[in-house]
């Protein structure tokens, strides 16, 4: 699986929603991802990609859609 698929898979696992059709949908505004889900997302990313994102560095603006998460993951890898 590539980064795209893994990220979509993680998001699907946390929110129960498939974002592959709408990669730019705002995951925070829709209420699908709350603070708890955010922490799960960070832990999953740490687990799957070995990237370490401290909570201080987590800026909602930079992580607000599937596409933005993929961009972030790729830049941190």
């Amino acid at each position: 699986m590539n980064v795209n698929e893994i990220v979509l898979d993680i998001l699907n696992g946390i929110t129960g929603t498939d974002f592959s059709k709408d990669m730019d949908a705002d995951i925070f505004m829709s209420g699908l991802v709350d603070s708890m889900a955010t922490v799960e997302l960070l832990l999953e990313l740490q687990d799957k990609f070995g990237i370490d994102v401290p909570i201080s560095e987590f800026n909602r603006e930079d992580w607000k859609s599937a596409n933005k998460i993929i961009q972030k993951v790729e830049s941190l890898q």
């Binding site: 603070s35 708890m36 955010t38 922490v39 799960e40 960070l42 832990l43 909570i55």
Partner: peptide
């Protein structure tokens, strides 16, 4: 909240 959940889950 986020730091505590992070710690508890990790």
């Amino acid at each position: 909240f986020m730091r505590l959940t992070f710690f508890l889950m990790k």
